[in-house]
Design a protein around this nucleic acid. Structure first.
Lengths: 245, 245
DNA sequence: AATTGGGTTTGATATAGGTCAATATCCGTG
DNA sequence: CACGGATATTGACCTATATCAAACCCAATT
C-alpha cells in the first residue's frame, strides 16, 4: 500500500526545463521551444511514494518526467489496486484526464523524481498558434492510444511468458531511447506491480523470471535485470509487431 | 475470416452530414457546425464485410459512423486476428493512427453502414481557429484513452463472467445513449469476435451466456439479447467504475 | 551486528478456462 | 425448399495459472 497522503512537492523556479532534451521532437524551432519553456514554469521534485496526482482530482496539467520513475494505478472499490502504466524520463503523464477534467487514476513516484508541469489550458491555447505543437500534442495522445491498445493485445491473447518477455523488451527499448543501456537495467517496480500491470500474480512473475533465467534468456537478481538473449526473447512473442507498451 | 479485398464505397455528395445529431456536443454554434459540415464533405456507404481502412494504410481521416456497426482488429503475423473494439452510430473511428500516420488496425463493417469522412489535416487546421472544436477533438482522443484503459482493467483483473457482464452493460449503455433500447438489442458480432475482444475463447463466451440465461440475468437467443436483471449484472462486477469500453 | 519487515522465491494443490470433439442451429443460395 | 457452410451450444478432458503456504533474502534501522 502507498502512503495515504500526497506530499507537497518542492517547487523550483524553472528558468529552463530543457524540454527539448526530454520530450520534444527535432522539428521545433528555437523560438517555439522558448515559448514552451515559458509556459512550463514549474519544476517539481517528488520523493518515492509521493502522489503526482490522484484519481478524482481536478485535471490541470500534463507532466513531463525529467528524472525518476512513476506508475499509474486505479484503485478498485474493493481495495485491490491495478497498475495501468509505468512512466520513465522523457515521457508525458496525465493524458487520462482530458476528456473528463478529472483524473481517472493515481500517479505515484516509484523513486525520487523531478517533473516539469505543463498547464493544459495554456498548452491548448499555445497550440492554436503553433501547428508544430498542435501536431505534437495529437501525436502524444495518439501514441498513448496505441500503447494502450498494445497492452490490450498483450492481455487479450498472450500467456504469462509472452507477456513478461514483451514487458522486458519494452522496458529495454524505452531505456535505450533515453540513452541508457538496452540490455541491463534496474526494475523500479515490485513483482506485485509488474504482475498487476500484466494481469498475473506476483508468484507467476517470479516463477517466469526464474524460468527465463534457467533458460539463459536473462540474468535476474532481485531488481536488476540483464537481457542475455534478445533474439530468443523476441522469438517468444512470435514476432509481434513492436507495439510500445 | 473477412473478405480479402476492400470494396470501393459508394460516394455520395453530402450537403449535410447532420453532424450535430450524431457526434457533436451541444456547445457548438450553428455557424461552427456549418463550417464543420463543409469540411465533412463525404458520406460513404459500406457493405457488411467491407474494410473502412486497413492496417498499414495511410491515415487521412477520422470517420463518424452514421449508421451501422464496425469492428477494429489487428492481425497477428501468425494469422490470428484480435478485435480491439466495436463502434456504433455516433462514434468516431480512426484515432489509432494519428501518431504514426499509418493505421495500426483494420476497420471492418459488421453490417451495412454509412460513415461521414472527416479529413484530419483540415480538422486540425479548423480546430486552430475554433477552440470548441479543438477541445472536442482532445476530448474524443482522451475518451479513447480512457476506454482503452478500461479494457486493460477488464482484461487484467476480471474473470470471464465479469468481462462479459461488463461488455453487455457497456453495449446497453451505448445503445441507450443513441436512443435505442438499453435492455434489448441485437449483437452484431459473433461469439468468436466477442471472445477475441474480451480475451476468451468463443466456447467460454457461449457457456457464460448460457449460464447467465440459466440464472435469469439475460435472455439470449443467438444474436438477440435481452437484459433481464441489470442490477445483478452490475453486481457481478463488484460495482466497478462505469468505464466506457 | 542483530532485528525486523517488505519483497521474493519455491513448492503443493485447486480451478477457471482452454482444447478437442460431437451435434445443433441459423442463414444465404441455388 | 433443400442444401451446405458458418456459427453456436454442450460435453469431457487438460493445462496454465491462481491460491495457499513456507522459507528465504536483503535493506533499512536500531
Amino acid at each position: 500500500m502507498q502512503k495515504a497522503f500526497t506530499a507537497t512537492p518542492t517547487q523550483i523556479a524553472c528558468s529552463s526545463c530543457n524540454l527539448r532534451e526530454f520530450c520534444l521532437p527535432a522539428d521545433f524551432t528555437e523560438d517555439e521551444i522558448r515559448q514552451l519553456e515559458t509556459l512550463a514554469s514549474l519544476k517539481r521534485a517528488y520523493r518515492r511514494g509521493d502522489y503526482l496526482y490522484r484519481s478524482g482530482s481536478r485535471f490541470e496539467s500534463l507532466y513531463a518526467i525529467r528524472t525518476g520513475f512513476f506508475k499509474t494505478q486505479v484503485l478498485h472499490e474493493d481495495g485491490r489496486e491495478q497498475v495501468t502504466g509505468f512512466q520513465m524520463p522523457g515521457e508525458i503523464i496525465g493524458l487520462d484526464a482530458i476528456s473528463t477534467d478529472i483524473h481517472t487514476c493515481d500517479a505515484v513516484a516509484l523513486e525520487d523524481s523531478e517533473i516539469c508541469e505543463l498547464p493544459f489550458n495554456r498548452l491548448e491555447k499555445l497550440s492554436r498558434q503553433m501547428p508544430t505543437l498542435q501536431r505534437h500534442l495529437h501525436k502524444i495522445m495518439s501514441r498513448e492510444i496505441v500503447r494502450d491498445q498494445g497492452i490490450m493485445l498483450l492481455l487479450g491473447s498472450m500467456r504469462a511468458e509472452e507477456r513478461l518477455a514483451a514487458f522486458l523488451l519494452n522496458l529495454s527499448q524505452r531505456f535505450a531511447a533515453r540513452g541508457y543501456s538496452a540490455s541491463s537495467f534496474r526494475l523500479r517496480m515490485t513483482r506485485q506491480e509488474i504482475g498487476s500491470y500484466l494481469g498475473m500474480k506476483l508468484e507467476t512473475v517470479s516463477r517466469t523470471l526464474s524460468y527465463f533465467q534457467e533458460k539463459r534468456l536473462i540474468d535476474v537478481n532481485n531488481k536488476s535485470i540483464e537481457l542475455l538473449d534478445m533474439p530468443r526473447l523476441l522469438a517468444l512473442l512470435g514476432q509481434q509487431p513492436a507495439t510500445p507498451l
